[in-house]
Simulated scan of single mutants.
Amino acid sequence: MTTRRSFLVTGVALGATTILPTATLAQEDGSNTFETDAGQITVHPLQHASFVMETPAGVIYVDPVGEASIYEGLPDPDLILITHEHGDHYSAETLQAVTAGQTQIVTNPAVYDMLPSELQSKAQQVANGETLDVSGLEIEAVPAYNTTEGRLDYHPEGRDNGYLFEIGGRRIYVAGDTEDTEEMRALEDIFLAFIPMNLPYTMDVQQAADAVAAFQPTYVYPYHYRGEGEGTQDPQQLADLVGETDAETEVLMGDWYEPGEL
């Protein structure tokens, strides 16, 4: 597995060294660890929109794509969450490579219908607004869609999922590909959030900052932020903008990209 570094932004400056009581600064392998009532959650940013979480409820892979070597050295998934069908979020080939005997898969209905039969037998589908119980973990499908004229066809309303679940008293929100929807802004008591921001497919950095200021997660990872040309959004700018609001949110940076990638 490629070694990656990440860093914690506290307020505005990247060089801040304040150690927070509920999270560690990034480890040598690029992960961050968070305390919960049930034990630790460790987040491994991998690439673009793909990451792994080791949790007291099991190992969770989110939108695994790319070469299987990216996942070497990480434990096998107990659960895989797939937000939608685009190639930077769904790859049947990658799923077949990383899925283990005990793995359960949760997808939106569109991806469920695309799954090869051997993967579909391990999968459950959940639509916007529905909640699914997977081995005692309740997973809510939060609508993920575009709202800006000219972007509506990328992620039409009603098709794609974000995911909301709680582990050890910590509510975690994975946004998937979306703009700053009413459903996102209405979220409450979010401990850890993953927010996309690239154009034209999701939202720009100002939209992302406005959304964070609205629902005020304790921690937020900007991810899925590289695009073509001006479509790329600056995660440091997000930290700066959030720092100018009343939100007591810490912006976490992961090494989602290798140099020259995407």
Rank of each mutant, 00 (worst) to 15 (best):
residue 195 I to D: 04
residue 122 K to I: 04
residue 119 L to H: 00
residue 112 Y to E: 10
residue 230 E to V: 05
residue 195 I to N: 04
residue 146 N to L: 00
residue 176 G to W: 08
residue 141 A to E: 08
residue 178 T to I: 03
residue 121 S to E: 14
residue 229 G to K: 05
residue 128 N to E: 12
residue 160 D to N: 14
residue 182 E to I: 03
residue 191 F to I: 02
residue 180 D to S: 15
residue 123 A to E: 09
residue 121 S to L: 11
residue 201 Y to K: 13
residue 191 F to A: 11
residue 154 Y to S: 12
residue 158 G to P: 11
residue 216 Q to I: 00
residue 150 G to Y: 04
residue 125 Q to Y: 06
residue 120 Q to I: 01
residue 113 D to H: 13
residue 173 Y to H: 13
residue 221 Y to F: 15
residue 118 E to F: 01
residue 220 V to L: 03
residue 213 A to Q: 07
residue 182 E to Y: 02
residue 132 L to G: 02
residue 159 R to H: 14
residue 136 G to K: 10
residue 157 E to N: 02
residue 212 V to C: 00
residue 143 P to C: 12
residue 229 G to C: 05
residue 159 R to Q: 15
residue 169 G to T: 08
residue 161 N to Q: 13
residue 180 D to R: 05
residue 218 T to R: 13
residue 217 P to A: 00
residue 193 A to L: 04
residue 197 M to W: 13
residue 179 E to T: 07
residue 118 E to Q: 08
residue 135 S to V: 03
residue 154 Y to M: 12
residue 182 E to D: 15
residue 156 P to N: 06
residue 129 G to D: 02
residue 158 G to R: 10
residue 163 Y to K: 10
residue 154 Y to P: 01
residue 168 G to P: 08
residue 139 I to D: 07
residue 113 D to N: 15
residue 163 Y to G: 08
residue 209 A to V: 04
residue 184 M to L: 12
residue 200 P to Q: 10
residue 156 P to C: 12
residue 190 I to M: 00
residue 185 R to P: 05
residue 125 Q to D: 13
residue 193 A to H: 03
residue 116 P to D: 06
residue 176 G to D: 12
residue 148 T to W: 04
residue 165 F to T: 10
residue 157 E to F: 03
residue 223 Y to L: 15
residue 206 Q to W: 11
residue 194 F to C: 09
residue 230 E to L: 12
residue 133 D to V: 12
residue 203 M to D: 04
residue 151 R to L: 06
residue 137 L to I: 12
residue 169 G to D: 07
residue 150 G to H: 02
residue 130 E to S: 09
residue 214 A to D: 13
residue 166 E to A: 12
residue 203 M to N: 04
residue 115 L to G: 03
residue 231 G to S: 01
residue 231 G to C: 07
residue 204 D to E: 09
residue 121 S to A: 15
residue 174 V to A: 08
residue 183 E to C: 01
residue 147 T to W: 00
residue 145 Y to R: 03
residue 187 L to V: 03
